[in-house]
């Protein structure tokens, strides 16, 4: 992969090193994590954030998929940007995104069928994820390939960070586990069995402390993700006051 990038990039580049990583480039990665977060600030990609976050592991896989699609679609669009006629640019972008998403889908189907089933249509729906297209239009069409690639990774990470946060809250309170179904094993938190960290059916002297918790059904349905994202937006703005829109 890296070799082909080098070859195709050579004519576009002049004096600067190919893969410069200075202050500006670092900002491309860190900005989407906070000041320019795709979910909490730009409010894009909400649909999939509500749908896939019942368990952490599928959210994690989704994050990887979005980072991959975002980064490489940015890269390819940026490489082709001077050859794309303005009138048909959307179609060209769509071909790039759709190809990458199909690659992700085919790979996931072969590697982990269970997660493929859990994510169902939402892998395919990355094609319509506003974050991907938004970044192509706003960034990749006007910037050099390397920086576009970083911008794609940054935005994928920003999306993934929120996805994982929401997923962690929903899985712990909704199912009492963490990373259920993942190859690195399941951590169990709140439930009525000795396997759980907080055993809500404990027969010891702690009965009165740990007999009360029932898995929260609200956390399992998608409406809860809306509340959690809203709380995150509020918390982020309380801490990062320059995001508050005074108008």
């Amino acid at each position: 992969m890296a070799e082909t990038i080098n070859k195709e990039k050579a004519p576009l580049k002049e004096k600067k090193p190919l893969f410069e990583f200075g202050k500006k480039e670092r900002k491309l990665i860190t900005d989407p994590l906070n000041d320019d977060n795709p979910i909490t600030v730009q409010v894009l990609g909400i649909c999939s954030a509500l749908a896939v976050t019942t368990l952490v592991y599928p959210s994690f896989v989704m994050t990887i998929a979005v980072i991959f699609v975002c980064a490489f679609s940015n890269l390819f669009t940026s490489l082709l940007r001077s050859y794309i006629p303005k009138a048909v640019r959307m179609i060209v972008q769509l071909v790039i995104i759709a190809t990458l998403v199909t690659i992700v889908e085919l790979t996931l189907k072969a590697v982990n069928y269970t997660v493929y089933k859990q994510l169902s249509v939402f892998i395919g729906l990355i094609i319509t994820n506003c974050i991907v297209m938004g970044r192509l239009e706003a960034f990749a069409m006007a910037n050099k390939p390397w920086r576009s690639f970083l911008d794609g990774i940054g935005n994928g990470l920003g999306y993934g960070a929120i996805l994982l946060l929401v997923g962690i809250v929903r899985e712990i309170f909704g199912k009492g586990t963490l990373f259920a179904g993942s190859p690195f094993g399941t951590l169990k938190f709140i439930g009525a069995s000795p396997d759980y960290l907080i055993n809500t059916a404990a027969t010891s002297g702690f009965d009165s402390w740990f007999g009360w918790y029932q898995n929260n059904g609200l956390m399992v349905i998608s409406a809860s993700a809306m509340f959690i994202i809203a709380v995150l937006i509020w918390a982020q703005r309380a801490w990062n006051t320059k995001l508050i829109d005074v108008s």
Binding site: T102, I103, L106, T107
Partner: peptide, 9 residues
């Protein structure tokens, strides 16, 4: 690319 992947997988 896609046809190749589909056939292999």
């Amino acid at each position: 690319i896609l046809a190749g992947m589909q056939t292999v997988l």
